[in-house]
């Protein structure tokens, strides 16, 4: 089996690390060898944060090389474009949560620097030498922004994105039960698997 590289990104405070941890555990429960790493420290204060998850028998370094991600998950639109610019392989897949947290430069220099548009993402991804599949998700009914990451996770589960890696919904639920308890576990499981 070839190595699968998963790049998860967003802004500090969005729950990028926890999303990556869910994926890491899910893939491991399905019997895959996984390694990964998250951003800690300074960048967690509103900067770009990234997590790497690597799957396959011959993964050694937790880091993913530029332009070598098979799957990119982004929790914010500007970061989604940056992520595919830096990490996407041709014919890879981007799944992003479509919220906007304007970076400082966009806010300080309106008219000169602008937030990424959905069109920019699809144009960049769709270029013939890339052919990256793009999925944009948003759920305005979420009562807590800390659950935005679960929208991406539930997309992975519902659309069986990891079925080539032998992942079933149960593996996701097992991973969630490792990381959450009581009402938060219930709410997150509900997003994944509505009753």
């Amino acid at each position: 089996m070839n190595t699968i590289n998963i790049y998860v990104t967003g802004v500090g405070g969005q729950g990028v690390g926890i999303a990556a941890e869910i994926i890491l555990r899910t893939l491991s429960y399905a019997g895959n060898k996984v390694i990964g790493v998250d951003t800690h420290g300074l960048a967690q204060r509103g900067g770009t944060v990234e997590s790497f998850v690597r799957v396959g028998p011959s993964v050694y370094s937790p880091l993913i090389r530029k332009n070598s991600a098979d799957l990119i998950l982004a929790l914010e639109r500007n970061e989604a474009l940056r992520a595919i610019q830096e990490y996407a392989k041709p014919s890879s897949r981007l799944i992003y949560y479509d919220t906007l947290w304007s970076p400082l430069n966009v806010r300080l220099h309106p008219g000169e620097v602008a937030d990424t548009t959905k069109m920019q993402i699809s144009e960049y991804a769709g270029a013939s030498n890339r052919n990256i599949e793009v999925v944009s998700l948003k759920d305005d009914s979420l009562k807590d922004i800390r659950m935005q990451n679960m929208i991406l996770i539930s997309y992975l589960s519902k659309n069986k994105i990891f079925s080539p890696l032998n992942v079933t919904t149960d593996h996701f639920i097992k991973a969630l039960s490792d990381l959450f308890s009581s009402s938060i576990l219930e709410e997150n499981t509900n997003i994944l698997h509505p009753k």
Binding site: L42, G47, N67, P103
Partner: peptide, 21 residues
């Protein structure tokens, strides 16, 4: 080589330094 090709892309990247909450 592909890596090099991609890095020549002209789409500007948005920097996001950390900031006060």
């Amino acid at each position: 080589q592909r890596q090099n090709n991609n890095s020549n892309e002209s789409v500007a990247k948005l920097e996001r330094p950390p900031q006060l909450c």
